[in-house]
């Protein structure tokens, strides 16, 4: 049966000879082959250089700044008045502004994000998840400038209806909106952690007659705890570094206070203020922005390292 379509009939082609002839092109490609790892290595080096660039620029200019303003005065000063005749550079007002806005954001984002995650992971049907998840993704994809606009033109006026004495620029409104912005991130990271809890663990508890809520409280959340904590920490990191919402909606008063109805400046908003103010390169105020950026960088880096450490522990559990 084979004889009919046996290759005998076809034209004899000497592929080997042809390949031998093409050797010259192979020489070129072999050279390329040796160069490419080095090209890719130097491309990869860009990320390392970026890190180095960030650290070096922040460090050198910060050191400059500390030569003018003693580091201790800066870190413990409660007054920040760089434009005064006798300027004062205390960073605590900025830190309090940053911490307060982040706390407000987390008060909004942590419970709502976590409850959303519980609903999606434990209660919602496939259909509901299929609709809700993309909506949350859209929410996460909205640029922060849009949230800033929303805080300034909608949330602040709305809050002022209920809270008499709320200033037009205040830290409460941007804090809340920042929280809304972070909800999708916490929801999706926590949901990932909860979904990766093996079903066997749930079934064991359900078989004993537990309700879903009890299973969630006693089995799922404990098992996914480090993942959930990591999502919170990343949320905090995100809030600390958020710029546009607070810049637009919280004004630029360098208040060292805990009154959320007032205007407060965050570290990020201070950097924006200094750079948009066209500070002369070399002036003290110009150097101060690096010192502030350095603190911000260290804060967020710390959060990210913690989050990674916590979630790595979580992976080891199963």
């Amino acid at each position: 049966m084979k004889k009919n379509n046996h290759p005998t009939k076809t034209n004899p082609l000497n592929v080997k000879e042809l390949i031998e002839k093409g050797k010259k092109t192979r020489k070129v490609s072999q050279k390329l082959e040796k160069i490419i790892p080095f090209i890719l290595l130097s491309i990869t080096a860009v990320s390392v250089l970026t890190t180095l660039g960030i650290i070096l620029t922040l460090l050198t200019e910060t050191i400059h700044f500390f030569n003018i303003i003693p580091i201790w005065d800066f870190l413990t000063g409660t007054v920040l008045k760089p434009l005064n005749k006798v300027p004062e550079y205390g960073v605590l007002p900025l830190i309090s502004g940053t911490v307060i806005s982040s706390v407000i954001a987390m008060i909004v984002a942590a419970p709502i994000g976590l409850m959303t995650a519980i609903y999606l992971s434990e209660y919602a049907s496939e259909k509901v998840s299929l609709v809700v998840k993309p909506i949350l993704e859209v929410l996460a994809g909205i640029p922060s400038i849009v949230y800033g606009f929303f805080a300034f033109t909608f949330v602040t006026p709305l809050l002022r209806e209920f809270i008499p004495g709320l200033e037009a620029a205040n830290i409460l409104s941007p804090g809340i909106v920042m929280g809304i912005m972070i909800i999708p991130m916490i929801a999706s990271l926590s949901e990932d952690a909860m979904s990766s809890v093996p079903d066997i663990m749930r079934e064991g508890a359900l078989a004993l007659g537990s309700t879903k809520l009890e299973v969630t409280k006693r089995v799922v959340i404990p098992a996914a705890l480090s993942g959930i904590i990591a999502s919170f920490v990343l949320g905090i990191s995100r809030a600390l570094g958020e710029t546009m919402i607070v810049t637009i909606a919280s004004g630029s008063t360098k208040n060292f206070s805990f009154d959320v109805t007032q205007s407060m400046q965050t570290m990020t908003a201070y950097i924006v203020e200094v750079t948009s103010g066209d500070a002369a390169s070399g002036s003290t105020i110009y150097y101060s922005l690096y010192a502030v950026a350095m603190i911000l960088f260290i804060f967020t880096l710390l959060m990210n390292v913690i989050a990674r450490y916590v979630s790595r522990k979580f992976r080891e559990e199963y």
């Binding site: 990869t44 990320s47 390392v48 970026t50 890190t51 660039g53 960030i54 620029t57 922040l58 200019e61 990343l234 990191s237 600390l240 570094g241 958020e242 710029t243 990020t268 950097i271 924006v272 750079t275 390169s281 922005l289 690096y290 950026a293 911000l296 960088f297 967020t300 880096l301 959060m303 990210n304 390292v305 990674r308």
Partner: peptide, 26 residues
């Protein structure tokens, strides 16, 4: 390298702005 990239992903955008202003602009 991997850790470095993960850390870079978490650096606030405004810090990149400071880097860009210092290196590229000035």
């Amino acid at each position: 390298l991997q850790t470095n990239i993960a850390n870079l992903a978490g650096v606030p955008s405004i810090v990149y702005g400071v880097l860009g202003m210092t290196i590229f602009v000035r």
